[in-house]
């Protein structure tokens, strides 16, 4: 049975401090609780968290669920999205082998922009096989920065607890459903149209 690598890119810029930071932290905990309680996810899912602010850091390397702990999220600094994308494809190259299927990537933004040069990294990333969904919080966020290398861009209207929970619950459902397919050795191709989000999450673009 193939393993399912999941990379979560978290924008942890200075603006995230306070309420939104707590919301993201709690929602990550909720996601972890559900994943750890699912027999298929426990057997197949490997999680990694890449946090990006003034620089990008893989705060949790690709780890099996039973060893995974939610890291502390702290918002500070700018938005080095380009560095995060570079780190992502470097890790895809080193951490993923034939025992894994193509990774799921969830880019959880806050400002939804970049303060560094992201284009070269994005071009490199697109040479790898993966499925990505980007999330915007509120009406900030520039779709053109993400459109070409992510399969879907979703917006939550406000950066509040309920909407972050709905967002991460939807991410959890996708991961669990996908891990069930892998566990039962059904098809591996991700058809994102199967995972259309609930009403609270607005689709901005979809490939």
């Amino acid at each position: 049975m193939k393993k399912l690598p999941v990379y979560i890119l978290l924008e942890t810029c200075g603006g995230l401090t306070g309420g939104p930071q707590r919301c993201v932290q709690n929602a990550l905990h909720m996601m972890t609780l559900f994943l750890k309680g699912d027999q298929h996810a426990v057997n197949t899912v490997y999680l990694s968290i890449i946090s990006y602010n003034s620089y990008a850091e893989q705060v949790v390397p690709l780890t099996d669920l039973s060893s995974f702990d939610v890291p502390k999220i702290i918002g500070h600094g700018t938005i080095a999205l380009g560095e995060a994308i570079k780190l992502l494809y470097e890790k895809i190259d080193t951490e993923i082998n034939d025992n894994y299927c193509a990774p799921l990537v969830f880019i959880v933004t806050y400002r939804g922009v970049s303060t560094d040069n992201w284009q070269p990294a994005a071009i490199e990333l697109m040479k790898r096989k993966y499925f990505a969904i980007t999330f915007f919080a509120g009406f900030q966020g520039d779709p053109d920065v993400f459109r070409h290398y992510t399969d879907m861009i979703i917006r939550i209207q406000y950066a509040n607890a309920d909407l972050y929970n709905a967002l991460f619950y939807w991410i959890t459902e996708i991961i669990i459903d996908y891990s069930k397919n892998l566990s039962l050795e059904l098809e591996e191709v991700v058809d994102l149209h199967k995972y259309l989000p609930p009403n609270e999450l607005e689709i901005i673009s979809i490939r």
């Binding site: 709690n26 609780l33 559900f34 929970n165 709905a166 619950y169």
Partner: peptide, 16 residues
């Protein structure tokens, strides 16, 4: 936030 979702027992078995 999870209106219209099923009341799976998991929701009720953890304080968080």
């Amino acid at each position: 936030f999870n209106r219209n979702k099923e009341k799976n027992g998991r929701w009720f078995s953890s304080p968080k």
